[in-house]
């Protein structure tokens, strides 16, 4: 790995890691179900950027773009179903608070 691409990868790696950490923190710290989904979105965005960065460094842009497109389609479908589940929870408890739905315990 050449010095230039190494530096680029390290820079991107650090920022991607920070973005993923923000997403995970949001998922864990919040009680609001929609905010938790926003955290998931941030986490998945970090991963998307990582794939693109890897494609740039290894010069496999075509393959990584194909992967990213598939991944974005999957992401949207997962989000749609997740929002359906959140709306379902709300129709039962009339709130979006995760503390209201702690019936089951791991």
């Amino acid at each position: 790995m050449s010095a230039e691409s190494l530096q680029l990868f390290c820079t991107f790696g650090i920022f991607i890691f920070m973005l993923a950490a923000i997403g995970v923190y949001c998922m864990l710290a919040t009680y609001n179900l929609i905010r938790a989904l926003i955290g998931v979105e941030l986490l998945l965005k970090a991963v998307t950027l990582l794939i693109v960065a890897v494609g740039y460094i290894t010069k496999h842009n075509a393959l990584t773009q194909a992967m990213v497109i598939t991944f974005i389609v999957i992401e949207v479908v997962v989000m749609t179903v997740a929002i359906g589940v959140v709306l379902g929870i709300r129709s039962h408890t009339n709130s979006l608070d995760a503390r209201d739905i702690r019936n089951l315990k791991g």
């Binding site: 995970v24 998922m27 179900l33 938790a36 998931v40 986490l43 998945l44 997962v78 179903v81 997740a82 589940v85 959140v86 379902g88 929870i89 039962h92 408890t93 739905i101 702690r102 019936n103 089951l104």
Partner: peptide, 17 residues
């Protein structure tokens, strides 16, 4: 059901991770 939604939400979160 309420419980089913809760379980599905938990599954979605862990699965997304």
């Amino acid at each position: 059901d309420k419980d089913a939604f809760e379980a599905a939400f938990k599954y979605i979160m862990l699965s997304a991770m």
